[in-house]
Amino acid sequence: MWVAEMDGAIAGWLHAFAALRVGVPPFIEIGGLVVKPDCRRAKIGSGLVQKATAWAEAEGMKLRVRCNSEREPSHRFYEALGFELLKQQHVFER
């Protein structure tokens, strides 16, 4: 987990972890990224993603992130950072 500060206060955080799945090579996954609304557009999020990117590269792994299909601003954010849509899926719960 990485935390970003601005003016001595927490402005955002990113949680990433190594994901092990059957049938695909291990990868680093962003589990959560939050930036305070009044700190957005200050490169906090992209700086945190860069830290996760550096970790993934150091481990020789790809970096992935999952995003709710309704969160269009998040999609644009990640696409602007060079992420490409890999797949779409449905989530079922019981």
Results as ranks from 00 to 15, higher is better:
74 S>Y: 03
61 M>D: 11
92 F>L: 14
46 S>C: 03
37 P>V: 02
32 G>S: 11
78 Y>I: 07
21 R>Q: 15
72 E>D: 07
58 A>I: 04
23 G>Y: 01
55 W>A: 15
49 V>I: 15
22 V>K: 12
38 D>T: 04
19 A>M: 13
72 E>F: 09
50 Q>M: 08
48 L>F: 00
5 E>K: 12
72 E>W: 05
16 A>T: 11
88 Q>W: 04
78 Y>C: 09
20 L>Q: 14
63 L>S: 14
59 E>T: 09
86 L>K: 10
28 I>L: 12
77 F>T: 06
53 T>A: 08
53 T>W: 04
94 R>K: 15
4 A>I: 00
84 E>I: 06
83 F>L: 13
66 R>Y: 14
27 F>K: 09
10 I>E: 00
74 S>W: 02
66 R>E: 06
80 A>T: 13
55 W>M: 12
8 G>V: 04
81 L>P: 10
57 E>M: 06
37 P>C: 05
5 E>C: 08
12 G>S: 01
29 E>I: 05
76 R>V: 04
83 F>I: 15
62 K>R: 14
25 P>F: 06
70 E>T: 05
15 H>L: 10
63 L>Q: 09
43 K>I: 02
60 G>M: 08
75 H>M: 07
48 L>H: 00
92 F>R: 10
26 P>Y: 04
34 V>D: 02
14 L>C: 05
63 L>E: 11
66 R>I: 09
43 K>W: 06
11 A>I: 00
94 R>V: 03
25 P>K: 12
42 A>G: 06
75 H>V: 13
26 P>H: 09
17 F>H: 15
46 S>F: 01
92 F>N: 14
71 R>V: 04
10 I>M: 00
22 V>H: 14
18 A>D: 12
26 P>G: 15
56 A>Y: 08
53 T>G: 09
71 R>E: 07
17 F>P: 01
32 G>A: 09
68 N>D: 14
24 V>S: 10
92 F>T: 05
41 R>S: 11
